[in-house]
Amino acid sequence: MLRLLNIEYYKLKYNKASRVLIIIYFALLSLMSLFATIKFNIGPIKFHLAELGIFNFPYIWHFNTFVASLLKFFLLLVIVSMVANEYSNKTIKQNLIDGLSKKEFILSKFYCVIALSLISTFFVFVVSLILGFIYSSYTELTIVFSDLEFLIAFFVKLLGFFSFGLFLGMLIKRSAFAVAAMVVLFLIEIISYGIVCGINKGTELADRIYQFLPFKSLWNLIDEPGSRLSAVKEVAAQIGEDLSYDYSVRWYEIAIVLAWTALFIFLSYRLLKKRDL
């Protein structure tokens, strides 16, 4: 396993585009702390994001993993080009001739996906911890380390998303088209979701079906955190809207995404095995 990871790291290390994207990604992750400095002064209303409580433990785990997962697109480009470039340079052929088995080839890519997801998760953990200790109103350890399941959800979310990218890269062999295909699939899912909601005059049935589809299942892992803010809740209460719902990470949501991950990796392997290079 370490050998394969080492090979993959070596391939990425010298690729300038991938290196730049990875650096931008981690730079943006650390820039999350800049949210803390957002201050609006609209006449008499003073708005300071950090004081809204978004950096309070344990809410910060939810908020930061949600925001960080929006940045995953940068790493998706790295993953997709990592796979598609092997085709366009025909190095996949040379790798196999040099004695890498097809299974090892897919595994080396998958290990790389796992490694990038793990590093991102760890990075978000550290950034959140630091931000939390600076801005949080509560710093008791039992509170600090509660709700950590959001980090697990974050890891699984990246894993599923990147595996999807890996599969599309294997399938389509061209980075640009693979990313475009992902966007198209996303649009198909979201538009058909809207139609199903429209027909049933409600999201209940649509949610029940779409929780099994790739993008919705990824989205479900970490619910949007905005409505959980006390300030938002207060406003909602004033206009008579009840926003309280269950934010927690549910086991079956994780299971669905892990099933997709396994399917994507398996299909990538099948594809490579059947294909004549």
Binding site: N15, N89, K93, Q94, I97, G99
Partner: peptide, 22 residues
């Protein structure tokens, strides 16, 4: 297995395939 055997084989096929950025 074939892929282990290939470690004892040296082969080039058609055009040379390498990573252009290395």
């Amino acid at each position: 297995s074939t892929h282990d055997a290939l470690k004892k084989v040296g082969a080039i096929i058609e055009r040379p395939n390498f990573y252009p950025y290395m």
